[in-house]
């Protein structure tokens, strides 16, 4: 059996890559996907904990996280569309209507 820490390290690596994507990319869609990557990395660690601790809490929480991620995706993309209709750009550094 693979030690628990390996799963958590994998989750940590994915989370960090997600953070990098969030901070470094210009395209809002990619930034959004970095957030989804971060959420998925948390899911992996939750399921791993759930398995090794022999408890179901982790899996249940993953269930809810997936549901929330779906809701967030819907709203986030709706916000993006609403913005795009007024201002046809999705590059982060071009969204500077409000200063600072």
């Amino acid at each position: 059996m693979v030690p628990l820490s390996w799963y958590i390290m994998l989750s940590a690596v994915m989370f960090s890559i997600g953070v990098f994507g969030f901070l470094a990319r210009r395209n809002l869609i990619i930034i959004f996907m970095s957030i989804e990557l971060m959420l998925n990395s948390v899911n992996i660690s939750l399921v791993a904990f759930s398995h090794y601790l022999q408890s179901m809490r982790g899996q249940i929480l993953v269930f809810f996280v997936i549901a929330v991620a779906a809701a967030e995706a819907a709203i986030g993309l709706a916000i993006l569309i609403a913005y795009y209709k007024n201002n046809p750009t999705i590059k982060v550094d071009e969204i500077t209507g409000l200063k600072g």
Partner: peptide
């Protein structure tokens, strides 16, 4: 972005 290196460092 312009500050992508900073993002890489933080990551």
């Amino acid at each position: 972005q312009n500050q992508w290196f900073l993002g890489l460092v933080i990551g």
